[in-house]
């Protein structure tokens, strides 16, 4: 018996690309509420392009993105931003901005441009800073911080949006091992305790298998494998998707699949 599921975010015949190049020709993907999905695949497989198209950051080249069953374009962009938070890879550090000022921007969709004319320092920002371990760095300039600390600031900004859906593009990039684990546990906790739906692009397959409910393996813009980690992190899939010859064993702590290259 599986509990009934609701699709919160879906690509319907979705084609995605940058400029004139189409990276993802046509793809159907349905993301269930309260799950953590990891998009994996080699460089250039289209996973980030797909994520940014689902996030309406890139316009679809064909097909539709459905948010809560309706075309995402049916809602205003700011309404979408109250439901769906995005962590892009390409965030720009404004010259001289502090961590707190960047995290404050996460409040924009909820409060709107007029309320945001007043300086914000509320419990939502406080919580986002605490969850990302940034309370001590809150008043530091972002451009004086390490790559990992900056990445946590962007994650804190996304958390401050307080959305039910989070789309994270390579959230563990630049993070040291300790902060990678903290972030993955945070993601798991957001999902398990608050029912937040997470779709993220990850490069570390073992990390994906350990913390995600579902892996979607992409290559050349098509889905080559889709399912729970045990079904996706297998030697045949690793060979087909990554050209990697590997052994998969149960990881000694959780028993989830764990791959080692041969």
């Amino acid at each position: 018996m599986t509990p009934p599921t609701t699709t919160v975010l879906a690509g319907d015949g979705l084609a995605a690309g940058h400029g004139r190049t189409t990276v993802v020709p046509a793809l159907d993907l349905a993301v269930e509420a309260g799950t953590v999905t990891a998009l994996v695949g080699p460089n250039g497989s289209g996973k980030s392009t797909l994520l940014m198209t689902l996030a309406r950051v890139l316009p679809p080249r064909g097909g539709r993105v459905l948010l809560d069953g309706e075309p995402i374009t049916a809602r205003s962009s700011v309404e979408v931003a109250r439901r769906l938070g995005v962590l892009p890879q390409t965030a720009v550090v404004p010259a001289g901005a502090t961590v707190r000022e960047v995290v404050e921007q996460g409040r924009y969709p909820q409060l709107g441009p007029w309320a945001m004319m007043r300086r914000r320092d509320d419990s939502v920002m406080e919580r986002a800073l605490r969850l990302t371990g940034l309370l001590d760095l809150a008043d530091r300039r972002l451009d004086s911080l390490s790559g990992g600390e900056r990445q946590r600031a962007w994650i804190a900004m996304t958390l401050a949006q307080q959305t039910g859906i989070l789309l994270l593009d390579e959230p563990t990039t630049y993070l040291d091992v300790r902060h990678q684990i903290d972030l993955m546990r945070l993601v798991r906790g957001l999902c398990d305790e608050h029912g937040i739906t997470v779709v993220m692009v990850l490069h570390d397959l073992n990390q994906a298998a350990r913390y995600a409910d579902r892996l979607v393996a992409l290559r050349d813009g098509t889905v080559r494998a889709d399912g729970p980690p045990t079904a996706v992190l297998t030697p045949p899939v690793l060979r087909e998707v990554f050209d990697v010859d590997a052994v998969v064993v149960p990881d000694p702590v959780t028993g989830r699949p764990w791959f080692v290259a041969r």
Binding site: V78, E79, A81, G85, V86, P88, T90, A91, V92, V102
Partner: peptide, 12 residues
């Protein structure tokens, strides 16, 4: 000022 992708993500 956070970049186009982040700005769109915030609803701009």
């Amino acid at each position: 000022s956070l970049g186009e992708a982040a700005a769109v993500g915030l609803g701009l």
